[in-house]
């Protein structure tokens, strides 16, 4: 355990030195906050551009606070996932390529604690940044529109977090398999997008797909009721996360550590 903590601390220290603890949360704040701001100021923006002839009336019904929050959340599942993948894809493959992994693993350090310390570190960064960013989005939505109940906020935060966790774990797992981080990043994005596309096109047959979590969380926000399939799909997401993590550790053990 103390060994794991040392590895974990090294991981956190490295994230400070990379400034990840600064730029990832800031990016997540900016990503989410732009939604309530642009929706609120849209009439003024259109006015100031002055493209409308006299007498033309455009009535845009102001979106509800929940809709604005959902729009903000969709930023996190698109650009947010991209940022998560880009920041985690090099965690294992980069260290293996540079020889750091070999240097650490010649010492009596288990592969499990090596991989899981990196995983927990990346998870902490993701959940923390997502919390800060989403909280800012919620706050701005509350000021500019209406206040969404904090319980709904935390419920949607948790379920969206599960989906982001799966994306992150897929990336770590692939990062253990490939030496080039670009390959790992590309493939994990492909897997996440494929899951989304397949699930949304076959949504009737895939009620329990982890990619549905975000849809269900949106429903939860809009109606305040928990959809029936939310729990099975979250459970499946959790199981998939664990499987990907185990596969990652397993592959990492078998791969040659020294590259070229």
């Amino acid at each position: 355990m103390s060994q794991w903590l040392t590895l974990f601390q090294k991981e956190l220290l490295e994230m400070w030195r990379n400034f990840k603890w600064i730029w990832v949360p800031i990016t997540f704040i900016l990503l989410g906050v732009q939604e309530p701001l642009s929706s609120h100021f849209m009439p003024q923006i259109i006015n100031s551009l002055g493209g409308l002839p006299d007498g033309a009336v455009i009535k845009i019904p102001p979106p509800s606070a929940q809709e604005v929050l959902i729009k903000g959340l969709s930023q996190y599942t698109s650009i947010g996932v991209l940022i998560i993948v880009l920041t985690t894809m090099g965690l294992l493959s980069g260290e293996r390529k540079s020889g750091v992994a070999a240097m650490i693993l010649v010492k009596p350090v288990s592969y499990e604690s090596y991989v899981t310390s990196k995983w927990v570190g990346a998870m902490l960064l993701m959940w923390g940044s997502f919390l800060i960013g989403y909280l800012a989005t919620w706050y701005y939505t509350g000021i500019l529109f209406k206040w969404v109940p904090i319980s709904d906020f935390f419920a949607s935060y948790f379920y969206y977090g599960l989906w982001l966790t799966l994306a992150l774990t897929v990336t770590i797992s692939l990062s253990a398999m490939f030496l080039t981080s670009g390959m790992a990043g590309f493939l994990s994005l492909a897997i996440v997008i494929l899951m989304n596309v397949v699930t949304s096109s076959l949504s009737n047959w895939m009620e329990w797909s982890p990619a549905q979590i975000t849809t269900y969380a949106n429903k939860l926000l809009l109606t305040g009721k928990i959809p029936d399939s939310l729990f099975p799909s979250s459970l499946l997401a959790l199981v998939c996360t664990i499987i990907f993590l185990l596969v990652g550790i397993f592959v990492f053990k078998r791969k040659e550590l020294a590259s070229s």
Partner: peptide, 13 residues
């Protein structure tokens, strides 16, 4: 009051 925090964190970045 709304825009200043956003401009500040952009500057920090």
């Amino acid at each position: 009051g709304l825009l200043a925090p956003i401009i500040i964190i952009q500057l920090i970045l």
